[in-house]
């Protein structure tokens, strides 16, 4: 077996091990590689910056633990920024695991007394029904979520006073990893009601969301963990996402290198029989 044949048949476990080493190393010893801001993140940040203390934002948590590593840091960074600005947040979810992530974000602020439940923040829980549920909630928020996650009446909560439909929120943000998600929010709520919609998405979903950004239906887009890192730096509170950017860059380099080696090996091994004949 020639060198190029061997290069094509590297044991996958060696590649896995290399990837783990390459990703783990900068976590332990950060390299401080530079990070630029994408246009969609800047637009997202600008929309949040326009909000005033007392404004209300709806955050729809449409993701599960399997994609949380890519999108949850976005939710954490944006929620932190909103809370610092004195903006009130209503969490809702059209994915079963969503309420759990809302609890994770709210609890430290509630424990420290920084936020008052029902006044500054509420967890409206999970509403089943995918696209139909999103439409129903979009047009009648309190009617579609009469009780919060803990069974308390939402109609009597100060944060929900005056909220009839999603237009009454100053901004609606959808953090999403699949369907129902961005398309459903755009088709069922943003289109008919013209809400101010921002999206934070797992990076795999970005190509599907881009047409909505291009058309102005989505005002800003955070793209995966990188989007979270950019937002953390813009809002001045570098966190878990920014810390992982070196590791992500090195991981990409390894994958690019593997693709190049694989392709070069393929073409070289195709050439070899000719060379042998000569």
């Amino acid at each position: 077996m020639s060198f190029w044949d061997k290069m094509q048949k590297i044991d996958r476990r060696i590649i896995y091990a290399l990837l783990v080493i390459v990703v783990a190393f900068p976590l332990i010893r950060p390299l401080g590689l530079p990070l630029s801001y994408s246009d969609t993140t800047l637009k997202f940040f600008d929309e949040i910056e326009k909000l005033q203390p007392g404004d209300r934002v709806l955050i729809s948590l449409d993701y599960a633990p399997s994609g949380a590593a890519d999108v949850h840091p976005q939710t954490v960074a944006v929620s932190k920024h909103l809370i610092q600005k004195g903006v009130k947040i209503a969490f809702v979810s059209f994915w079963e695991a969503g309420p759990m992530f809302a609890e994770q974000i709210m609890q430290p602020y509630l424990d420290s007394g920084e936020l008052v439940y029902g006044e500054d923040v509420v967890n409206l829980g999970y509403i089943p029904g995918a696209n139909s549920a999103i439409r129903s909630f979009g047009f009648d928020c309190v009617g579609s979520a009469p009780k919060d996650l803990n069974g308390k009446d939402t109609a009597s909560m100060p944060i929900m006073q005056g909220i009839k439909d999603c237009r009454d929120f100053d901004v609606v943000i959808d953090f999403v990893m699949g369907s129902p998600g961005t398309a459903a929010w755009v088709q069922q709520v943003q289109g008919p009601l013209g809400i101010n919609l921002l999206v934070g998405s797992v990076v795999v979903e970005v190509p599907a969301s881009m047409p909505f950004v291009q058309a102005g239906q989505v005002k800003g887009l955070l793209q995966g963990l990188r989007g979270a890192a950019e937002y953390e730096l813009l809002s001045g509170s570098a966190g878990i996402a920014a810390a992982g950017m070196d590791a992500q860059s090195l991981g990409h380099l390894l994958i690019i290198g593997s693709i190049l080696v694989g392709n070069v090996a393929y073409f070289m091994s195709k050439k070899q029989p000719k060379n042998n004949k000569q």
């Binding site: 990837l19 783990v20 990703v23 976590l27 399997s66 994609g67 949380a68 590593a69 890519d70 797992v202 990076v203 795999v204 995966g224 963990l225 990188r226 992982g244 590791a247 992500q248 991981g251 990409h252 994958i255």
Partner: peptide, 10 residues
Amino acid sequence: IMGRISLLLG
């Protein structure tokens, strides 16, 4: 690829 590396990173 970017998404999967993010998951590994997490």
